[in-house]
């Protein structure tokens, strides 16, 4: 399946809703062109869970809300030449960051102890090792690792993602037309 000369692209969804990944798929028939242009490394698109070498471009959806997000993001930084924050959540924290004005304690209590319909007589907060610990607040990606490029939008339109990836892979400057950045 792979010809080693093709640039490799990795993607991941951290604390996002997968909407941005849906938008990647929204490039429609250009998916074939994309498949010609690149090889996907670690990505939900092919479900590879680990890196097996360096990548030209890494695309991140979502910010960091827990320790595992940080770990994955760090791994992406270590393996990718260019790291891209895709979408509002990666760039600003997005909807998940609405909890940033509340202490973590209150968020946990609301979710596991106080919400209507909760039955938790022992008052236990989930502490299974499988469940990553939450950070005290949601961080945008560039506050955790160095990010080289940002694609705004919630989600960014397919065309913006396409234009950016093609420009990065062909070594051209990334310029998004005004219509691609204007949403109202």
């Amino acid at each position: 399946m792979s010809t080693p000369s093709k640039p490799r692209v990795a993607t991941t969804s951290l604390c996002g809703c997968f909407g941005c990944h849906m938008s990647i798929l929204d490039i429609d028939e250009r998916l074939f062109a994309l498949a010609d242009l690149v090889e996907f490394a670690r990505s939900p698109i092919n479900d590879y869970k680990e890196f097996d070498g360096r990548c030209a471009v890494g695309i991140i959806e979502g910010g960091c809300c827990n320790e595992e997000n940080v770990h994955v993001l760090e791994d992406f930084r270590k393996h990718c030449n260019i790291l891209v924050s895709m979408g509002e959540c990666a760039i600003n924290g997005g909807i998940p960051a609405m909890r940033n004005n509340l202490p973590l304690r209150e968020c946990l209590e609301e979710a596991y102890l106080k919400s209507p319909g909760i039955w938790n007589p022992a008052g236990i907060l989930p502490n299974d090792i499988e469940i990553p610990l939450l950070l005290h607040r949601v961080y945008p990606c560039h506050e955790v690792v160095k990010i080289d490029c940002f694609i705004p939008g919630c989600p960014p339109p397919a065309d913006a993602i396409w234009d950016t990836v093609v420009a990065l892979l062909t070594g051209k400057p990334v310029t998004l037309a005004y219509e691609r950045l204007k949403y109202d």
Binding site: V70, R77, R105, N127, I129, L133
Partner: peptide, 27 residues
């Protein structure tokens, strides 16, 4: 370029959760 920014402190960021949940971070 490699790794976490020095301005980001994971141990500080998870300290509260460690306290609440009662176990230490594995990262």
């Amino acid at each position: 370029k490699l790794g976490l920014l020095s301005t980001f402190d994971l141990s500080k960021a998870v300290a509260d959760a460690e306290l609440r949940v009662g176990r230490m971070s594995q990262y």
